[in-house]
Amino acid sequence: MIAIIDYGMGNLRSVEKALQSLGADVVVTGDPAAVRQADGVILPGVGAFGDAMENLRAQGLVAAIQDVAAAGTPFLGICLGMQLLFTSSEEHGFHEGLNLIAGHVRRFQGDFKIPHIGWNDLTLHQESPLLQGVEAGDYVYWVHSLVVEPKDRGVLLATTDYYGEVPGIVGQGNVFGIQFHPEKSSRVGLTMLGNFVELVREGVRA
C-alpha cells in the first residue's frame, strides 16, 4: 500500500489516478498512523512552503514522515513535496523544512519569465532505480518558481536547464524528490512513477 499524504495542499487526484493506472494500491490519507504503516509514501502538493509545513505540523505528520524516511520506506516528494524535503526555504520569509536532505530552497533570480512553465528536457547525472527506462533528453512538465540547492551535489539524479541548472530529481537512499510533475508528464512521467511502485514492491518482498 502506498500512502499519498493529504495535508490540504492542492489536488491529489492526478497523482492518485496515475498510480492506480500503473496498478498500484494507494490510499490518500492525512492520518500519521496510516503513513507509518504504508509500504511507500508520496508527499505531493502545490502552494506555499510555509503553509505546507504548518499543515504538516498541525496534522502531526512531521514526525511520521521523518520516522518512515529513517526506517527505509521508499519516500517520494513531488513538486512542493520535493522542496519540503530540504532544510529550509526562502519563500515568503524563512521557513524550516523536513530536513531529510540538506539544502535550501530559493527563488529563481534573473531577467526571464517566472514561473518556469512547460516541457523541458532532462540531463541524467547518475543511475537510479527511479530512472529505469528514462533517457537523457526526455521531456517532462514543470511548473515552479523556486528551485532547490542541495548542499551535496551527490544527491542530484537529474537536472534541466532554465537560465542555469535546475535540479529535477534528487535521491538520497530511500528518499526521492521530483521537482516537475511526473503525473502530468505523459509516458516519461508514468515510467518514473512505475519505477517507484516497483521499488515499493521490492521493499515489501524483501
Binding site: K17, V143, K184
Partner: peptide
C-alpha cells in the same frame, strides 16, 4: 479527463467565482 489523461489541462468557460475555480481544481 484527469483520471485518464496524463498531460496538463486548463478548463475555462463561465468561470465567475472563487468557488467555481475551487470546484474545477478539485475535479482535477
Amino acid at each position: 479527463t484527469a483520471d485518464q489523461v496524463f498531460i496538463p489541462f486548463t478548463v475555462g468557460g463561465g468561470v465567475k467565482t472563487v468557488d467555481d475555480i475551487r470546484e474545477l481544481l478539485l475535479a482535477g
